[in-house]
Design a protein around this nucleic acid. Sequence first.
DNA 1: TAGCTGTCCGGAATCGTTACCAAGAAACAA
DNA 2: TTGTTTCTTGGTAACGATTCCGGACAGCTA
Lengths: 346, 346
Amino acid sequence: MDELTIKDVAKECGVGISTVSRALNNHPDISPETKKKIMGVIKETGYIPNNSARNLKRTDARCIAVLIKGITNPFFSSIIQIVETQVQKKKYAMVIQHVDAYENELDVALQLVKEKRLRGIIFLGGAYQHDKRKVEKLKVPFVFCTIGTVHETGKKTYSNIAVNDRLESRRMVDYLLDLGHRRIAIITEGTEAESVGQLRLEGYKDALAARGIAIDERLIYEVEDEQDPYSMESGYATARKLLDSEVDFTAVFAIADFLAVGVCRALHEAGKRIPEDVSVAGYDGITIGEFYTPQLTTIKQPIGKMAEKTIKLLFDVIEGKSGHEHIYFPAELVERESTGKPNISE
Amino acid sequence: MDELTIKDVAKECGVGISTVSRALNNHPDISPETKKKIMGVIKETGYIPNNSARNLKRTDARCIAVLIKGITNPFFSSIIQIVETQVQKKKYAMVIQHVDAYENELDVALQLVKEKRLRGIIFLGGAYQHDKRKVEKLKVPFVFCTIGTVHETGKKTYSNIAVNDRLESRRMVDYLLDLGHRRIAIITEGTEAESVGQLRLEGYKDALAARGIAIDERLIYEVEDEQDPYSMESGYATARKLLDSEVDFTAVFAIADFLAVGVCRALHEAGKRIPEDVSVAGYDGITIGEFYTPQLTTIKQPIGKMAEKTIKLLFDVIEGKSGHEHIYFPAELVERESTGKPNISE
DNA sequence: TAGCTGTCCGGAATCGTTACCAAGAAACAA
DNA sequence: TTGTTTCTTGGTAACGATTCCGGACAGCTA
């Protein structure tokens, strides 16, 4: 009585276990009546097949996994929703696996592939540095989404969906320069090459260089919060340091909207008006930017379209309809209340 | 060559498979040299044990699961972090399972217990209505966290950690009444009895009743967004309806901080000043309330303490050190910028 | 009636691992 | 030397499902 198995169901129905299995898996070789009877007993007894045992033998499982690194990212829930509806349309199952900050997502994926029979994997967030060996070992097709730049030369072994961070970042800084700003502080994150923060910082430097404006290192700030770098708290703390430094600036470009919110708060408390005294620009295009006062000027990533492309691409590869691709989506610069022309009297 | 199994490792090492198994599971009955040799081969070949097969046979697994319903809830990531550190201290593993909006979390739990050998479960968010039969079937100890009220008479079969929503809600309304407000609109969610929204609405009614103020149904609003009811968007939309109704009010109590942010935005756009023209109060105590302009007056739930108690209680029950408990934590009313005395001239 | 075909079902092998048992080797006491 | 204990090891039976194979039976054809 401890655990209900397929054997118990078979005995209860007076049939063999293979017949019960056939009923469970929609096999054709079973008469409608027996199937109906078996399903009735299953429902009545509340029998649930043991998935470990199933996976041990199965060959066809229609299942994909979504690996999430950094559950705080506000994009993820909307991406998951979109992916989920598509997955259901295809009659696939989907598992969501959280990856801890200190875990390597490829290791987790490797482990998961052993455990379940996956047909594909989607990586949300995470590293930009990929161990070639591990990638090769992972025989299942996979797509990175919103990870930033991924370099892969030659034949592509996986897909990548992202925004061109360097370019979009430059666009924002160009916009601020066009408004007349010359002393633009940037708040960024991450020192590793190819990290999202570094790419956006490159874009900032590109824009300044194109106009022959010298880089002032005193305007470049790196957040210090390692626990949760893209948080309002770290934006606030960094802005405080910027204010205390007494270096002149007329605009702040925070490379994430959450950081920008923290910056706004710090400026507000220091008695600075936005955008009259200081302009603030963000990056990401999350909901809070629309509802914050002042509304945030930002680079809005087309998350919905990126999510749709991600899942479509994954299925195309699974079904052999296409090969892997690295695609950059264009983002949109939305101009809202937090930016304006610099105050000339200042 | 397709899939590496324990057999391959055993052959490679020239030992029996049970010996390899012993090396893998830290069994005492193995000589240090053989173990070292086996571990070397495992590392070299990159062998990963098949977890499905393991779970099929194993009896001792030290693993707990966290089931999340509604990944958008901003509390969850901090709860998970706290739980995770404690779990690691105990040398347990932890799996996080996302539960879709339309799935029943108890069904998912039942399924998960079949699949892995869990020692305990934590439910984050989700239903307040529990199917007695399913609860009984779930033989593993479990704790609900931040779910709201749960009634269980007699011997407790599970634990519940929450804030007394009705009481705390009343406290907020009392505070608004003390400030002098008499026409307080409330924005709530959910019509099911015992739902978080209903409990907070009860608290609102309690406070008014205690002072003999009649309930004006025109001041009670229910959000309409079913997809994501606790969102800034739905707060905004509901506040718009409130404004359009042209019913008088001097304060708005939104039963979630996200809703309150949407309300603030709508009021701001309508040219109302906060708190001079209208006071706005929230509930939850999430970060954005601190960084929003104006800073939000709210009921701050002691999330950290609740998370710590949740995991401690779960382990205590697992280890037989204590029975299940239903505990209410006291919340804190934090008075910030969004509330003030009503404007008498109005 | 004999032979063939197709439908439906049960038995047994199998998946990769762990748990248990028995056995061999080594070490020690009598 | 012999018996007993301790350590280490390999073989084998589970675990709970799926899948393959063959058999029973009904229906049809010649």
